[in-house]
Each structure stands twice: as C-alpha cells, then as structure tokens.
Computed example of a mutant assay.
Amino acid sequence: MSNTIHEEITFQSTPDRIYQVLTNSKQFSEMSGGAPTDIQNEAGGEFSCFGGMITGRMIELVPNERIVQAWRAGNWDPGVYSIAKFELQQKGSETILIFDHTGFPEGQGEHLKDGWTENYWSPLKAYLG
C-alpha cells in the first residue's frame, strides 16, 4: 500500500456538526468513548487525542469546510508527521467527508486505514446517530 489513504465517507449530519466534533475537545472525547482529548481550535494550535496516542497541530481550519492537521502517532520516530485533511461537502441532508492522509511512514497504511475506520468513522457515525 502506498503512503496515501483516500476515503469518502457519508454521514447523516451537517458539515457544521461534524466540524464541531472534530475540533472540540469535549465532543471529540465523548465521541471517542471518553478518551482524554485536548484540541486547540485554531490554526497552529496543538491537539492530543486518545490519551496522547495521536498528537499534532492544526495547520488550516476553514469552519464547516476543511480541517488540515500535521498528524502523528505516538509510536512514530520523533519529528515524524503526516498530513491529515478532512473536507466536508454537504449533499442534501448528508455530508460527504473526503479524507486524505499522506506522508506517513512506510508500512503503516493498512494499520492506519483500519484505525481511521475503528477510531474515527464508526464512532463518529454512532455519535451523530
């Protein structure tokens, strides 16, 4: 697998609601089952999710449209970051989340793709449910 993950996930929700969950510490923690979360909701702000297993910085925030993060897993070598981009597009009563994750270490793709589904997309659908 290459060092790129591209997914398009449909949610029965508004872009605003999804954006809020992904950029608000309290809501993200609730969505992720109560895991400690700290999200600074501003460009350049740091974030830490799942009790510090995922950390990084907010690179770009366009409310209800786009989130771009410098993103890293806690077991990666120091200073190694990837880019995670979340694009939100409303389609009628649904929102399509177009997700691209690039630049992660070799051999991590399958594990990360599974992790996005198990730790983000499935809990987010349930939380918005």
Score class of each variant (00 low, 15 high):
E110W: 08
P15T: 07
W121D: 05
I5F: 13
M31R: 06
P105K: 12
Y127R: 00
S82Y: 00
E46F: 08
N3V: 09
I98P: 07
N3H: 04
M58S: 14
M1C: 11
Q69D: 11
M53D: 03
I54G: 00
E94V: 01
G103A: 14
W76R: 07
M31L: 01
W116S: 02
F28N: 08
C49H: 04
S122I: 03
Q27Y: 01
L88F: 14
I96C: 13
T10P: 00
E46W: 05
T37I: 09
F104H: 14
F99N: 04
N119C: 12
K85A: 15
T37D: 04
L97S: 10
V68R: 15
G52L: 04
A126G: 09
G115I: 06
L112C: 03
S2M: 10
L22Y: 05
K26C: 15
W121A: 01
N75A: 04
E30T: 13
G56C: 06
T14N: 12
G56I: 06
I54S: 03
G44W: 09
W71F: 00
I54W: 03
G79L: 10
S122D: 09
K113S: 01
E118S: 12
H111E: 10
S29C: 02
V62I: 13
I96M: 13
G92R: 11
I59D: 12
E65F: 01
Y120R: 07
Y127F: 15
G45F: 00
C49M: 11
E106L: 12
P63D: 02
S25R: 05
E30R: 05
M1E: 10
G109A: 08
W116N: 06
R72L: 00
W116G: 08
F104C: 11
P15M: 13
G44N: 14
M53P: 06
S48H: 06
Q20V: 02
G115D: 09
G33P: 05
N41D: 15
G56A: 04
S48K: 10
L61C: 06
D100I: 05
T14C: 11
S2H: 13
T117S: 11
W116R: 05
M53R: 07
G92M: 09
G79N: 07
M31Q: 09
Q40C: 06
G52V: 02
G51V: 02
Q12M: 06
Y127C: 04
